[in-house]
Write a protein that binds this DNA or RNA. Sequence first.
DNA 1: AGGACTGTTCCGCG
DNA 2: GCGCGGAACAGTCC
Length: 258
Amino acid sequence: MPELPEVEGMGRNLRRWTEGARVLELAWLDPRLGDPGPPIPAGGLPIQRVWRRAKYLILSLPDRSWILHFRMTGKVVPGPRPLARARLHLDRGGPVDLVDPRRFATWRSCAPGEEEAALPPLGPEPWPDRRDGAWWAACFAGARGPLKPTLMRQDRVAGIGNILASEICWRAALSPALPTDRLTAADWQRVAAEAHALIEEVLAHETGEEIRFLHEGGDGPFAVYGRQGEPCLRCGAVLARSVQAGRGTWSCPACQRG
DNA sequence: AGGACTGTTCCGCG
DNA sequence: GCGCGGAACAGTCC
């Protein structure tokens, strides 16, 4: 169930395991996964680059790019694992598996250079560049809906998911229901600073060989997610859970300006 | 038992 | 035609 920092963590692992190595075989264990592209020729193919765009990981090979999307439960891990949906065999190290109990993840192929066209419309990346408030305000110019669901719009800013959106609102002391066009320049500046800091903190929690996600690892850097009924770390009021656009939202009703 | 879940896509309705 | 909301995907956990 990865958002930007968790996908970035998996990308770092995949880079370490595969970059400069050759793929000797891609074992396609679940035909519903997507499209592996042309067969791997005898002698294998080099993996030239591993990179992230939004919540997608892209592996560049000479004749194709693989586009991995993890949806809710997918992850890449050192193999072999039982029930893997796909397995990469390399010319060095052990296999790399895509595991995904709910089977929502996808692994597609496109021609080199066609990656952006193969993806849905995506806004610019909020990280690793240190974006300022004016950048965030420009990305969301004209957006009028409630702030938290708006922050999740991938066509405005790429990579913010449900947890990060709640956490950014809390850290910036803005109600998740605040109309987006009512944010001031100072509000956007806090959004910018807090989003960057939060992404760095989540990433710092995800340095292992296997990305754990919150429910598997305990103790993430989250102040409000899943903590309804507990005291707000800033003001002590009881944290609330609500539903916006069909997704859970966690917030402090007392200290987030609405 | 029943509902909730860190993502996206699709369909129907207004 | 567009935007929004709900359903769907499917397994696990509480």
